[in-house]
Amino acid sequence: DVEPGKFYKGVVTRIEKYGAFINLNEQVRGLLRPRDMISLRLENLNVGDEIIVQAIDVRPEKREIDFKYIP
């Protein structure tokens, strides 16, 4: 289970104008929005990159997770 405030290693699987989709595993995916990136820009991410993200909002009923990147 993903818990708000905890850090997780994930893989960038898709990049859109509104953010990057990060997979923690095959069943768990969330969104990293540009506003939640500190010292990292969306255009510097590539599909396949491994990054450490912090879960900031977890909505299991909608199967949605918002992430934050903190270097």
Rank of each mutant, 00 (worst) to 15 (best):
I65Y: 08
P71D: 09
V53M: 15
V58D: 02
K17H: 14
I22W: 02
E16K: 10
D1V: 15
N23L: 08
K68A: 15
N25F: 09
N25D: 10
L45K: 01
R29P: 02
F67I: 03
D66A: 09
I38T: 12
V12I: 13
Y8V: 03
I65P: 02
I51H: 01
F7Q: 06
I65F: 06
D49C: 07
L42G: 03
I70H: 10
V53G: 00
D36Y: 08
I70D: 14
I65C: 04
I52H: 07
D1R: 15
V28D: 08
K62F: 10
D66C: 06
I65R: 02
K17D: 11
R41K: 14
K17I: 13
R41A: 12
E61L: 10
I70T: 12
P4K: 15
E61V: 09
K9T: 10
Y69I: 04
E3M: 15
P4G: 07
N25G: 11
R14V: 08
K68V: 08
I38H: 14
Q54K: 10
P71A: 10
P4M: 13
F7Y: 13
I56V: 12
G30F: 04
G30E: 01
V47Q: 05
D49E: 08
R63G: 15
Y18P: 01
K6H: 12
V58Y: 10
N46Q: 15
V12H: 00
F67H: 02
I56F: 11
R29N: 08
L32E: 01
E16R: 10
E50V: 15
R59I: 04
Q54G: 05
N44I: 08
E50I: 15
L40T: 07
V2K: 03
G5E: 05
V28L: 14
G30T: 02
F21V: 10
T13E: 07
Q54F: 13
Y69G: 03
A55I: 15
N44C: 13
E26A: 15
V28Q: 10
G48Y: 06
V58P: 05
E64K: 08
Y69S: 03
V53K: 00
L40Q: 06
I38E: 13
D49A: 07
E26H: 15
I70Q: 10
N23R: 12
N25L: 04
V47E: 07
Y8M: 02
A55G: 02
L42D: 02
Q27T: 14
Y18R: 06
Q54N: 04
K6I: 09
G30C: 04
D57L: 11
E43P: 06
F67G: 02
R14T: 07
K6G: 09
I15L: 11
E43M: 09
L45W: 02
I70M: 12
V47S: 04
K9H: 12
L40P: 02
L31V: 06
R35H: 10
V11K: 12
P4H: 08
Y69M: 05
I65T: 03
D49I: 06
V2Y: 09
I38P: 08
E16Y: 12
M37N: 05
